[in-house]
Design a protein around this nucleic acid. Sequence first.
DNA 1: ATGCATGAGAG
DNA 2: TCTCATGCATA
Length: 247
Amino acid sequence: MMSMNSKQPHFAMHPTLPEHKYPSLHSSSEAIRRACLPTPPGLVAAHHGAAGQVGAAAGLASICDSDTDPRELEAFAERFKQRRIKLGVTQADVGSALANLKIPGVGSLSQSTICRFESLTLSHNNMIGLKPILQAWLEEAEGAQREKMNKPELFNGGEKKRKRTSIAAPEKRSLEAYFAVQPRPSSEKIAAIAEKLDLKKNVVRVWFCNQRQKQKRMKFSKYFCTPKYNREMRPSTLTNKANMRTE
DNA sequence: ATGCATGAGAG
DNA sequence: TCTCATGCATA
């Protein structure tokens, strides 16, 4: 049942980026952390007032560390976004610019990932791993603030476009109902559900996997279940170039 | 901003 | 098979 895989955080391993080999990045992630920056100016160790409550609820002691403290991550993410926008750089720009940092084992990231980092919709560990990298980029970008970032990157052939499956609302509601009573259905159960909803078994399986991942995102984790955080869970809009232009 | 998907690694 | 980090495609 609870096969809580306590695995190490690993990074990029995308099939669509042959440029990098991604050699066990997490091994060098600590090196990056050290090699990068000391600690943010005044945002370090915000308030530990709520930390006690959360820590108790979580039954953890490690989150007291300023580098893994959810509040510190939250503060950094917010500051990161603000400064990125100040620089007039999009999430996609940041993602591709990361490759220019030449950090061993660190290639580019997608707009999706940068977006999720800023909105805290990543796992706690994922946030911790990405923070030093994005922090390094931010420093570089602000250091070379007077120069214009260039990202040519234009090579397109005739690749097969992936088609995204769309699960209809009724089916989705059913899935959610099943998930509520059993987040981890057996293979057989999945097959049964798939047949009932007339969906491919794999689609149902992946849906459950993704649903479980959602529960583990920072915003929905135990660290952020207090009314206060729920209130501040609102999504922002000033992110894309389009929105920035709209001003 | 987010839904569905992939693939490495672990079990 | 699952988890986990991540991304393409799309709303």
